Amino acid sequence: MSIQHFRVALIPFFAAFCLPVFAHPETLVKVKDAEDQLGARVGYIELDLNSGKILESFRPEERFPMMSTFKVLLCGAVLSRVDAGQEQLGRRIHYSQNDLVKYSPVTEKHLTDGMTVRELCSAAITMSDNTAANLLLTTIGGPKELTAFLHNMGDHVTRLDRWEPELNEAIPNDERDTTMPAAMATTLRKLLTGELLTLASRQQLIDWMEADKVAGPLLRSALPAGWFIADKSGASERGSRGIIAALGPDGKPSRIVVIYTTGSQATMDERNRQIAEIGASLIKHW
């Protein structure tokens, strides 16, 4: 058993032996400061991975655009179909130039040979490839079927209504393609630790998130040596930015963190910096 498999397999085991986890309101002070700095709403939640207890939250039940963070949920739905014998990670999917949409750094290189379902999930999560996400959405029946999958998990909040890139429109008060921090954190925890997916599929999902290559300026920039993080970021119109993550010290995840912001006029660099500073406060007061 690899170190990674050891880590995921023991998450339920550690729940019975973990020390009490204490919240630190200092992080919420930073979240509120980020709102002031960005001139935008910020949603935040910090969840204990083992118990599911909410440690801190700010606007946990307000809607925010999901942006590309939905791609983790999408690959969770794909893995659920794999577990049920309805899909194979090794199945190759062929597509054409007409299928390519904006920001497809991986799929645009494989027009001649296509990509496997496994490769598409990797591209969608680690590189946020939009065509990969659309191709995967097609395999499960489209955005409405992803919403149905989430409903069956008990998440009646999170919804996907459109495809890439239209889902990134982020119109104020538009509930399409949105979630709430509390709903996203709970759903992510179920995917990573619950019985919905097999152990192998849970491991695969967290491996893809751990290999994320496009979230460096966010929480990863504040991470001390030896800490673990598996994450997925997102960005969209109207100053929207977000990240969902499982992270913790000693090389294993122990908390879920979800951060969303929307409605800012700030630059992408400034949005990144504010999220990184929230992460730094979280780690300092861990």
Results as ranks from 00 to 15, higher is better:
K252V: 13
W208M: 03
I256M: 04
E119A: 08
T126I: 08
G263S: 10
P60V: 08
E62A: 06
D231S: 06
A225E: 14
H285N: 13
H94T: 15
N152S: 15
R91P: 00
I283V: 15
I259R: 00
A246M: 15
G39S: 12
H285C: 07
L79R: 00
G154W: 15
L100F: 12
T107G: 04
T126L: 07
F14R: 02
P249H: 05
A84S: 14
Q88A: 12
L137V: 04
A266H: 07
L135S: 02
T267N: 13
D174E: 07
M180I: 12
D212E: 05
W163F: 10
T126P: 03
G226F: 04
V258G: 03
W227A: 02
I206H: 06
E119Q: 11
A246I: 13
I244N: 01
A40E: 09
R202G: 07
D212T: 07
A245S: 07
A15V: 15
P253V: 06
H94G: 08
L28M: 11
D231L: 04
L219E: 01
A245Q: 03
P172Q: 11
Y260H: 03
F228Y: 14
I171E: 14
P12Y: 14
P143S: 02
K109R: 12
Q97V: 12
S281D: 07
L223G: 01
R118K: 11
A225V: 12
A246N: 04
T186Q: 13
H151Q: 14
M184V: 06
L223T: 11
L137C: 03
E164K: 03
L247R: 00
A245P: 01
D129M: 00
K232L: 03
A200G: 14
Q86P: 04
R91N: 07
F228T: 04
Q204R: 10
R41Q: 09
E61D: 13
L19E: 10
L19V: 15
A34V: 10
L89N: 03
H5Q: 13
H94L: 13
E237C: 07
Q88N: 13
Q265V: 15
L111V: 14
G194A: 12
L137F: 05
A245C: 08
E169T: 11
A230T: 00
V72G: 01
M268V: 08
C18Y: 11
L19G: 14
R241Y: 06
E169R: 07
A230V: 03
I171S: 14
T126S: 15
N168H: 03
Q86N: 15
L197Y: 03
E62Q: 08
H285W: 10
S68N: 03
A9K: 14
N98T: 14
M153C: 12
Q4A: 13
D269S: 10
K284D: 11
W286L: 03
L137P: 01
S80L: 12
E175G: 07
K190V: 11
Y260L: 08
K144N: 12
D177G: 02
A182H: 12
E175K: 09
K284C: 09
D33V: 11
I11L: 13
M180Y: 09
S240P: 05
Y44K: 02
P224G: 04
M268N: 06
V21G: 11
D212R: 05
G226A: 07
V31A: 06
R63N: 04
L167R: 02
A183L: 04
R7A: 12
L89K: 03
A16H: 13
V106H: 06
A182S: 13
V72S: 04
L247A: 03
P20A: 07
I125A: 00
D129A: 01
F149S: 05
V8K: 13
R238C: 13
D269T: 11
S80W: 11
E166D: 13
D113H: 15
M153D: 11
L160F: 07
A215L: 01
G90H: 14
Q97M: 14
E35V: 02
Q88K: 15
